[in-house]
Design a protein around this nucleic acid. Structure first.
Lengths: 120, 120
DNA sequence: TACAACCAAAGAGTGTGGTCTATAGTTGTA
DNA sequence: TACAACTATAGACCACACTCTTTGGTTGTA
């Protein structure tokens, strides 16, 4: 699959995909049989990764965090134990974020009460 | 209270406080009795606002969103109905964010299972 | 009165995450 | 074979949220 098909399938522009490639989040391969061009070819795993990137960005993960997450999942850079430790860390910080969001909900609910009571 | 005391109390640098002031999030007042200088003076409300800013930033709110939130709470720019509508909107988007975070938790838990099962 | 610590305002610089432009080459269809 | 549509690379540009520097002045303590 070439970059334009990948872009269509994921809804991410070719530009941004190239940016992610440059940032090390994904990796296309050249086809060695084709010498007339230098095009990148992408596989299904890349589609999965881009979907993960979209989700992770939505919750505020940085490119760097996403890169680590992809490594924990797809690469063999880390041992089983290291991968599990990293993923546990992510789960804990997600719980913290959820807690923070709930606190903000309480705060805003309090604001609402005060507005209703004409306190401001 | 002058800027340095405000900085100490909130843990935000004077520089950043001036940046927030320039961005319209907070407003110091000049003391009209003092003509030898042009220093800003801050009240307790500003401390509250800065604490709100810290919390809101932690959950990923932009300066602009925080500015709107402060207006919804402290200013008289908006009617009661407008304030309530705005705050309800914020509550809904917070719920969405919590949902997104929970989805990411599920995803990462699945990754953990796969790592445990030696699937990657 | 020297001087460190403080203050304001303007503007330059930084890092992140894109987004766009320019250039140059390749491919597929009419 | 003309030409639209595709590709890569490099680098410019953007908004955001700071962060730091410069300049010039004020205040409080020894």
């Amino acid at each position: 699959m070439l970059i334009n098909e990948l872009a269509k399938r994921t809804g991410i522009t070719a530009h941004t995909i190239r940016f992610y490639e440059k940032s090390g989040l994904i990796k296309g391969k050249r086809d060695e049989n084709i010498k007339s061009n230098n095009y990148f070819h992408y596989d299904e795993e890349t589609v999965e990764k881009l979907e993960l990137i979209v989700d992770a960005k939505a919750i505020g993960y940085t490119i760097n965090e996403i890169s680590e997450l992809i490594d924990a999942w797809y690469s063999n850079k880390f041992s089983k134990v290291e991968k599990l430790a990293f993923l546990d860390e992510k789960l804990i910080s997600l719980d913290q974020k959820i807690k923070d969001l709930k606190e903000m909900k309480n705060l805003i609910s309090q604001y609402k009460k005060d507005v209703l009571d004409g306190k401001c």
